[in-house]
């Protein structure tokens, strides 16, 4: 049975923890709003990009001028997985969810006899994947210093991937991130980057019917467009990840605050009981002492 003093100390420490988790929850909520706004603001670009890409891919068809980034190497022996996770923990199962998803994928590829290479974006994913696949990790990208993810960050990652592709380091590239469905649900998602999965020309409106002039020619534009599209996809994934991380952190911290509240209630109850027991005991001692006189 812990003494009264112990109980008092524990209550104080749980209260302090509760204050911290509460503050973290509020910070996460504010950041979540900002992240959501950023993701929203980035949407028009990627939407228009995919429309344009669909149009142009249709125009080029299966010409020889189609860049290799789009057609791939024609093999699927070596896979490059780009795993994007958060830089910080304390956000529930967010990071481990992505890592587990990627791990299952890696195991499956390995059982098919494929070679796997990994690029980790974010510290947490690296920490988890390092345990099992240290030899496979070819690169890691640290965004801890970055306050607000800009397109430049995504572009840098994209350039690294393309450089690797040009050196024939891999055949297929897949991006792993967490799609932000809502504050309480983030779904780990795999997205194939290379060869580029061209969005099927979704019966686009007026633009599909138009016959375009290309300046310079379509192949040339496509050459410029595909790397850009890769960066855009990565950028979108990073933004979704930030929003997801903040959402997960918010609900995790909310849970923690509630748990701390329950714990305080329980501890206070046993503290009061014990105090009462002590008072009763002392009273009995006094009374029985008086009677003995």
């Amino acid at each position: 049975m812990p003494s009264l003093k112990d109980l008092k100390n524990r209550i104080a420490s749980v209260k302090a923890t509760q204050k911290i988790t509460k503050a973290m929850k509020m910070v996460a909520a504010a950041k979540l709003r900002r992240a959501q706004e950023a993701a929203e603001a980035a949407r028009p670009y990627s939407q228009r990009m995919s429309v344009v890409l669909a149009n142009i891919a249709q125009a080029v068809g299966t010409d020889d001028s189609v860049p290799r980034l789009m057609t791939g190497t024609g093999q699927s022996q070596t896979h490059l997985l780009v795993v994007c996770t958060a830089e910080r923990g304390l956000c529930g199962g967010f990071n481990s969810q992505i890592a587990r998803f990627a791990r299952d994928h890696i195991r499956r590829l390995q059982s098919e006899g494929k070679t796997v290479k990994i690029i980790c974006v974010g510290k947490k994913g690296y920490d988890i994947l390092r345990r099992d696949f240290n030899a496979l990790i070819v690169d890691r990208i640290d965004l801890r210093e970055v306050k607000k993810i800009g397109f430049a960050n995504a572009d840098e990652i994209g350039k690294r991937i393309i450089a690797l592709f040009n050196k024939d380091e891999f055949d297929v590239c897949t991006l792993f991130y967490s799609e932000f469905k809502s504050v309480i649900s983030q779904v780990p998602t795999a997205l194939q980057l290379i060869p580029a999965a061209v969005p099927a020309a979704e019966a686009a409106p007026e633009s599909a019917a138009a016959i375009y002039d290309y300046e310079p020619d379509a192949g040339e534009i496509l050459n410029d467009l595909i790397p850009r599209n890769i960066s855009v996809q990565i950028f979108r994934a990073l933004l979704e990840n930030v929003a997801g991380e903040m959402g997960a952190k918010m609900s995790a911290m909310d849970n923690a605050t509630r748990n701390a509240g329950e714990m305080i209630n329980k501890l206070t109850l046993s503290y009061n009981r014990q105090r009462q027991a002590q008072i009763t005991k002392e009273l009995i001692e006094i009374i029985s002492g008086a009677e003995a006189l």
């Binding site: 016959i211 375009y212 290309y214 310079p216 534009i221």
Partner: peptide, 19 residues
């Protein structure tokens, strides 16, 4: 500032895609 020189776009321009 198109790749192949400056370009002025006005209404009813022919459909064009340019870098």
């Amino acid at each position: 500032p198109a790749t192949e020189g400056e370009m002025t776009v006005m209404a009813n321009h022919a459909p064009t895609m340019t870098t």
